[in-house]
């Protein structure tokens, strides 16, 4: 059951989550985002994981009108495929770069090596981009590693940290607070504001993690 919530006067959050993550729903989220983006009355759309945040100027546009538009576009959106690339991410696991590896292994009832193998075995998909510049929410995490986020976020997690949280995998594009658990470190540059395409990854890309040599 899709719900539309207020996100202040100039924002609407369409939440289409219904149980576990759905690829089909995610493709409809992307399609809704693409359909709304060219509209002059839409400031921006921010796809999340099975949800979509739409912002607009409430001085110009009545929220109820935007809500109706969002509902209509969502209802008509189809789950079309988007082009995908594969990006391989080299990771140094554990030790000083992966301070939560032991905690995650205990949660999953695995050894640390088995935890690393489980993290490397999946093919992940970039479902959403956000939180911080160039941060990707990767779906496809082994359900055994679906540890909840920390009760209180860490105030400082280093750039390059390879993290998991709330059933997703991700990588820190910059040093920032985060409530996710740290498994390792990569030295890929995930975001550079001065590159023609600042983010390394696009919605729909496939990601694999490998051990850094």
């Amino acid at each position: 059951m899709t719900r539309i919530h207020m996100a202040g006067a100039g924002g609407l959050l369409l939440d289409a989550a219904d149980g576990p993550f759905s690829d089909t729903t995610q493709r409809r989220i992307w399609a809704t985002s693409r359909a709304l983006n060219p509209r002059p009355d839409v400031l921006q759309t921010i796809p999340g994981v099975n949800n979509l945040l739409v912002t607009f100027d409430a001085v110009q546009t009545d929220p109820s009108v935007m809500e109706e538009l969002l509902r209509t576009v969502w209802t008509q959106a189809s789950a079309e495929e988007v082009p995908s690339r594969e990006i391989v991410v080299p990771v140094v696991y554990g030790g000083e770069f992966g301070e939560d590896l032991a905690l995650v292994a205990r949660f999953a009832n695995l050894t640390e090596e088995e935890t690393i193998d489980a993290h490397m075995a999946s093919r992940y998909s970039v479902a959403a981009i956000g939180a911080m510049a160039g941060f990707v929410y990767l779906t496809g995490l082994d359900p055994r590693l679906a540890i909840p986020r920390r009760d209180s976020p860490r105030l400082r997690v280093e750039e390059g940290a390879v993290v998991i949280g709330g059933g997703h995998a991700g990588m820190m594009p910059c040093t920032s607070p985060s409530g996710w658990h740290i498994l390792g470190r990569t030295d890929l540059c995930l975001f550079d504001a001065f590159r023609p395409e600042p983010g390394l990854l696009r919605l729909g890309d496939t990601v694999r993690f490998v051990r850094a040599s």
């Binding site: 796809p47 994981v49 945040l53």
Partner: peptide, 8 residues
Amino acid sequence: SLFSHGIL
């Protein structure tokens, strides 16, 4: 247990 979503 919420999926990650845009926040303003």
